[in-house]
């Protein structure tokens, strides 16, 4: 079980695509920094098929900072910094796509 973090917008970077190639069935995907644009229901993840069983998270502080709270795709779970730490603990390792 790997926690993948993505910190770039899928519109300008291949990070999310790389992540989706490498992500395994029980892995977690956490969008941070500009990665949270990938959770915008008007773009990003909506356009890309996610492997089943993957939970997609977005970091609250980054979502709020960018005014995205009302624009998020419904299958994305917003988490705070404490839950970020919990996610790292509950996965065996983390891979950062940047």
């Amino acid at each position: 079980m790997i926690l993948h973090t993505v910190n770039k917008s899928p519109l300008t970077s291949s990070c999310l695509n790389n992540c989706l190639r490498a992500i395994g069935d029980n892995d977690g995907l956490l969008l941070i920094e500009d990665g949270v644009y990938g959770a915008d229901k008007h773009q990003g993840l909506k356009l890309k098929p996610l492997p089943s069983g993957i939970t997609v998270y977005a970091l609250k502080a980054d979502v709020e900072a960018r005014g995205l709270m009302g624009r998020l795709s419904e299958d994305v779970r917003v988490i705070d910094d404490q839950e970020f730490v919990d996610l790292v603990v509950s996965h065996n390792a983390s891979q950062s796509w940047y």
Partner: peptide, 17 residues
């Protein structure tokens, strides 16, 4: 291939990105 690539990640607990 994709499957092997994915298993590489699963088989390591120390990843440098």
């Amino acid at each position: 291939e994709t499957d092997t690539l994915r298993s590489l990640f699963q088989n390591h607990s120390r990843i440098l990105s």
